[in-house]
């Protein structure tokens, strides 16, 4: 069962530790800013919301989580290691030859990864199908899908949104990591005039907002499903690169590996230096 952290000191410690893991993993790969943007959401889900533990990871009645924005997987790996789904030592192999921890989650290789993702716009439909399947079998479990705001460019996201509403999937929760930056520019510039809240509302979803870096708020909110028959989406305000000041809101860190100087500097920032 979930065991959300209560006191601010241990919350802060956990979130710093996860960021350290991410910084270490990113020595040879990009996407560090992406992982830092969504790690607080993933941490809140796995420690305070999801009814899924290493012991129940294959239980048909478990809650499911799908990281549809698969390129944020360093955040997921760090959290899975923290929760004991995978051995911590695996994190050191991230992105290396022969490792099961690829730069997008592989299928069927990592305990706690429900499905492979990485090509955007797939996760919500799969999650909706899972939610529908659970309902059909009378299983009282929920499915959480984390998407990027950039990912919402994909038409298949909206096909899935419509399907989920038609299926009355009140056991489905979508979470949008709204860091406002996609691969080559700002979300608002690439989709001018597009209001994500209005888009989700127009598809019949229950729309809520949350601070994507406020652990306690996330734990309190994400587990709340909407009214009967309605899927819910949380639009989370986040900052790409959150927690490492020189990485925040800088597209460079969508791509740049973290060399040892950057790493030491980042660790100093995390220690408050």
């Amino acid at each position: 069962m979930t065991n959300p952290l209560k006191d601010t000191a241990s919350i802060s410690l956990l979130l710093r530790e996860l960021r350290r893991d991410i910084i270490r993993m990113a020595a040879h790969s990009g996407h560090v800013g992406v992982a830092l943007s969504c790690v607080d959401i993933v941490a809140a889900l796995y420690t305070g919301v999801l009814n899924c533990t290493p012991a129940t990871v294959n239980d048909p009645a478990r809650d499911r989580f799908i990281l549809s924005k698969g390129h944020g997987c360093m955040a997921l790996y760090a959290v899975l290691a923290h929760r004991g789904f995978i051995d911590r030592r695996l994190l050191d192999t991230y992105g290396q030859n022969g490792s099961v921890l690829a730069e997008h989650p592989l299928a069927g290789k990592v305990s706690g990864v429900e499905c492979a993702t990485g090509s955007l716009g797939h996760g919500l439909a799969i999650g909706a199908g899972m939610a529908q399947g659970l309902k059909l079998q009378g299983i009282d479990a929920r499915v959480f899908v984390l998407l990027g705001d950039g990912e919402c460019n994909e038409g298949s996201v909206w096909e899935a949104a419509a399907l989920a509403r038609a299926g009355n999937l009140d056991n489905l929760v979508a979470i949008v990591d709204g860091n406002g930056l996609q691969a080559c520019g700002k979300y608002d510039e690439i989709s001018p005039g597009s209001m994500l809240a209005d888009s989700w509302k127009s598809f019949g979803w229950d729309v809520a907002e949350a601070d994507g870096h406020n652990y306690q708020e996330l734990v309190a909110l994400l587990g709340q499903t909407a009214g009967a028959g309605v899927p819910r989406v949380f639009l989370c305000n986040t900052v790409k690169g959150k927690g490492i000041d020189f990485m925040e809101r800088d597209l460079e860190w969508h791509y740049r590996p973290v060399n040892s100087d950057d790493r030491d500097k980042a660790f100093r920032r995390l220690s408050g230096a």
Partner: peptide, 15 residues
């Protein structure tokens, strides 16, 4: 597109 993903999710839940 979403129909295929939806079917994948249904299959993954045991159907």
């Amino acid at each position: 597109a979403a129909m295929i993903g939806y079917a994948a999710g249904l299959a993954k839940s045991g159907l």
